[in-house]
Write a protein that binds this DNA or RNA. Structure first.
Lengths: 297, 297
DNA sequence: TTCGTCGATAGAGAATGTCTATTGACCGAT
DNA sequence: ATCGGTCAATAGACATTCTCTATCGACGAA
């Protein structure tokens, strides 16, 4: 029964019987049969079919919601019982927005001190994808924006505030300034994240608010790529202060505070609103609460 | 898997492999094998055995908690999907303390108006048993004392306040009074519920508080039995006002307010603290909220 | 029309589940 | 100490379910 609910979850993710089956480690006919059996038990069609997957029926949607709960609780149970025997162990799956990647180490490092048997998998994802992954039980926690777009059924722990800096070489225009305005930044050719990233949308909004427009010379979904360009001295970018510091500033590479307005975005740890939490997740929340004052300071 | 968790729940209730198996509709070896398989999957013993059932291990306790959740959610899912097709239907299982039995009709009657396809099963139980049944998913809702003894993981909706009356014939000692004190009541030979009932414990406490002692002439676990004795005119009892009214007063049978102190006990509907609720249960909560003002008035 | 993709179906074999019958351990009473 | 009685575990047979491979039929794009 729980396997079948798992099939439904996979189907919701993959929107494709074959791929969903593969994700579950079974063949496509097995998954088809599983879903069908669930439909017979419920006495109602769950999936709209027409020689291909066409989404869930309303009943299917409700089953999907329940399946997330039930499957999630089942995993949490296994994890908890396992922890009682072997201490905290297993794999903790985290996804973070690119601009927050650099500070993940501030959580994982002390976590590992305390619980050396836990392994980590960390994904770089957009804020939207993170919520989706959380919803579908594909990750245990996310690190993302808290303030802007609606979060789902999750609990959040604030970690730090993202403040923006113009990252540019000292000898570029504006390079000698102690602060610049968004209006001024709008005049500079920038390297920015792609528009599917919330960071980019936030910066776009700030530029537009200052009467400018966002026409980045270069877009990428990788902060490393952006930074390496800026480092040549020929490009500029807008980055959170924390990230710029982590990546490393030099005499010639400066991170200049951007004012008018002095924008702040709250970033935090986000975990499924399950009660009780998986222990492996609860430990991460603890770590986040411990780390937050340091990061903010 | 969910079947196996169900076995564990039954075992917790029955504390006996054979009876638990019967409750699940399987044979004892089947249930034994199911529990054993669960233990193998978890990699840990769940049940302490020594040629008979000796309770759960600490891990077993945790699995039990999770099992309640998971099995409960699974049933709620089935119920919800069923409701989407056939409207609200199925069987609503309620347990009430004996002194509240008379007012259950105030909930079930309007409920049935709105949802004619729902069937009811109503048990008369002690307040402690009610919490146990709720915990073990054997009932969907309880009607019991809210104030006194600790409730578990439940949500409560207040329904009315229990106020105490001396039920006695008009020509008995005290029979002509407009009010009596607990100290006076303590002098009368009473018919009371058995001491496993919270109502009895409350009355005992009140009698003792007034310097008296509780030495009932007759004890029973049935309010009907108590009332029928009082009705002969030869016995007296202490009953909640509401109940006395429902059972019917006559010229010769009086319900005299008891004062010093004028004791009040809150009675309410109690449902599992599950989010979301089973629809069948949510509808009962609605009914309770609707009925509460009338009952209190 | 044809080809490729997708999901359903058929049928065989494997794995699980469930039953009856029995055993072995323990407990209490003679 | 022995004898019954109760309880849960085990053995072995049978039934059900699960999962696989192979294939089909429907649909959509070229």
């Amino acid at each position: 029964m729980i396997d079948k609910l798992d099939y439904v979850l996979a189907l919701a993710r993959e929107k494709h019987f074959g791929r969903a089956a593969e994700a579950c480690g079974v063949t496509q006919p097995t998954l088809s049969a599983g879903v069908k059996q669930l439909e017979e038990q419920m006495g109602v069609l769950l999936v709209n079919r027409g020689s291909r997957f066409q989404g869930f029926t309303p009943e299917g949607q409700r089953v999907l919601d329940w399946a997330r709960r039930i499957v999630g609780d089942t995993r949490a149970m296994r994890e908890e019982i396992n922890s009682l025997r072997h201490g905290l162990s297993g794999r903790l799956r985290i996804a973070a927005i690119p601009t927050a990647l650099a500070m993940v180490a501030a959580l994982t490092t002390p976590y590992r001190e305390r619980h050396p048997n836990v392994q980590f998998t960390i994904y770089s994802r957009t804020s939207i994808e993170i919520l989706d992954l959380l919803e579908n039980l594909e990750i245990d926690a996310g690190i993302t924006y808290l303030g802007n777009e609606p979060l789902g059924r999750v609990n959040a722990v604030p970690l730090y505030s993202e403040r923006y800096r113009l990252l540019t070489s000292a000898d570029a225009p504006l390079g000698n300034r102690d602060s610049v305005t968004w209006a001024e930044v709008a005049q500079v050719p920038l390297c920015l994240l792609t528009p599917d990233m919330q960071n980019r949308r936030i910066i776009d909004r700030l530029l537009k608010g200052a009467g400018g427009e966002s026409r980045p010379t270069l877009e990428s979904d990788s902060m490393i790529l952006l930074f390496s360009h800026v480092r040549t001295g020929r490009w500029a970018s807008v980055m959170p202060a924390k990230l710029a510091e982590t990546l490393g500033l030099t005499d010639t590479l400066r991170a200049i505070p951007i004012v008018q307005p002095e924008a702040v975005q709250a970033i935090g740890l986000v975990v499924p609103a399950r009660e009780p939490m998986m222990q492996i997740t609860a430990a991460l929340v603890e770590e986040a609460k411990r780390a937050a004052p340091m990061l903010e300071g």
